[in-house]
Simulated scan of single mutants.
Amino acid sequence: MPNENRYFIAVIPSEEISAEITAIKHEIARVYNAEKALKVMPHITLKAPFVISNDKTEALMQWFKTITLQTIPFDVSLDGFDVFDNPKNPVVFIKPETSDALHNLQKEILQAFKSMFPNIPVHFHEDDFHPHITLAYRDLTYPDFLKAKEVFKTRNYKNNFRVKSFSLLKHNGA
């Protein structure tokens, strides 16, 4: 048994929206042979995956149970598709509309986390929060990414959900 585990903190859309997003992930897996994203439930990451030793897990759970924030509840509107066009690690995603409430929630969580766990490194991109719901990554080849990018840049997707909470999730390694 490993002496540490990976966790992350995220907002999870409603079951109905998650099912719609998962159907899009299945389509991408079928058309572009990119299945990795199917292993991860639809979510917006607020705190990137971090490693914590088993002897600190109880402190993490206690911190998470007692954290109080000012920014909940609020609505997230999903508006279309976008990409991270990086040849080594391309990503296709659903983009939430810019929201002060979502950005404030992420900042509050990061500040609270850094305060409680100052020795756990913070990912460089966490201070440049770019909320998204991943549809394809890691096993999406760059040529297939370019094809998907062309298809999804003209495709519409709109939905919204109410954020009433956020979740601490144990990372499965996907």
Rank of each mutant, 00 (worst) to 15 (best):
P73N: 10
T71K: 13
V91E: 05
I44P: 01
A37M: 02
S14W: 08
S77T: 14
Y142E: 07
R155M: 12
F129K: 02
N5A: 10
L168D: 02
M1A: 11
I9V: 15
F161A: 08
F81A: 00
V51E: 15
V11E: 00
H132G: 06
A19E: 13
D127P: 01
K114W: 07
L110N: 10
G80M: 09
R162E: 09
I24E: 05
V76P: 00
G80P: 08
L110I: 11
T45R: 06
D82N: 12
N54W: 01
Q111F: 11
R6D: 12
V83Y: 04
D82M: 09
N104V: 12
S14L: 08
F113A: 08
A34H: 04
E27L: 05
L60R: 03
L69M: 07
D55W: 00
N160S: 15
E58V: 09
F64M: 06
M61G: 03
S165P: 02
V163R: 06
I94Q: 01
F93R: 01
S115A: 15
P131T: 04
E27G: 00
P13E: 06
H43R: 09
F124Q: 13
F166Q: 01
D55E: 08
L46E: 07
I24K: 02
T134K: 00
S18K: 04
D128V: 14
P13Y: 02
I28T: 05
L146F: 09
H26A: 13
M1T: 11
E150L: 15
L140F: 04
K153F: 11
T66M: 08
D55F: 00
D139S: 04
R162N: 10
K95F: 08
H130L: 12
P131W: 03
V11T: 05
K107V: 14
F129M: 08
P42K: 07
K88Y: 09
K153C: 13
Y157D: 03
T45A: 03
L102Y: 05
I12Y: 08
H26P: 03
S53H: 00
L146I: 11
A112V: 06
S167W: 13
T134I: 02
L140W: 02
F166Y: 07
I17S: 07
T66K: 10
T98Q: 12
I24G: 00
E150P: 01
A37F: 03
F50S: 02
